[in-house]
Each structure stands twice: as C-alpha cells, then as structure tokens.
C-alpha cells in the first residue's frame, strides 16, 4: 500500500528542493507484502525529488543521511523511532534539518 507523507526540509536544506520547505508526497509501495519504511522514503526522495545529481551529496553520504542533518519523525529524533527501519504510516511528518553553525 502507498503512504501519504508530509516532508519538511529545514535549516536551509530547501535549496535542493526548489526552495520549497514543505512537500506532500505519495510513496508507492514496492511490494504488497512488505510495509514501506523510512529507507524507502529516502530512496524515493533521491530518485524523484532531487533534480540535479550534484545535489545528492548535500543530502546523502555513504548511503544514508549525511552527517550534520537531523532526521525527525513526527517531531521526534529518528534514533528514538528506529531510524531507517521505521515503518511509515500515512499522515506522518518527516523533517530533515541541517545543523546551523553561525552565531
């Protein structure tokens, strides 16, 4: 089954997504018997939403979200929710925010 997800790209990450902070996406299921997990969503974002291949390295490093970007599942750190194994549900809000350093 496909899931409807609200995506947020914060902390300046929107630059690689048409300068839009908020996106609504429907992630199609790949296999009817296995539920969609966060890893599938990340692959969906890379394959469908990042227009310029050179922007992938802004988002991904060593096949996962690059250091300096926090991933939040419904406003909670993904570490508390199973990281890439988290099972997506329709209505989830997934946020990505890059760390700010200036002061």
């Amino acid at each position: 089954m496909s899931v409807n997800i609200k995506l947020e790209f914060l902390g300046g990450l929107d630059v690689i997504f048409n300068s839009e902070r908020y996106h609504k996406v429907t992630v199609p299921s790949t296999n009817a018997s296995t539920p969609l997990i966060l890893r599938d969503l990340i692959k969906y974002i890379v394959d469908n939403m990042i227009k310029d291949p050179k922007d992938i390295e802004v988002f991904i490093e060593n096949d996962t979200i690059r250091p300096g970007i926090l991933t939040l599942i419904n406003d909670t750190d993904w570490e508390l929710e199973g990281e890439e194994e988290y099972v997506l549900e329709s209505g989830d809000v997934i946020s990505f925010t890059s760390t700010l350093h200036g002061g």
């Binding site: 490093e61 926090l70 350093h101």
Partner: peptide
C-alpha cells in the same frame, strides 16, 4: 547528536 562533523563545504557562516 552529531558524532561526526559535517562536510566543510556544507557549513555556512553568517
């Protein structure tokens, strides 16, 4: 929170 540092070209100063 951040066990490894961000790539330097991703860091923007004021």
């Amino acid at each position: 929170f951040y066990p490894s540092p961000p790539p330097p070209n991703s860091v923007t100063s004021c």
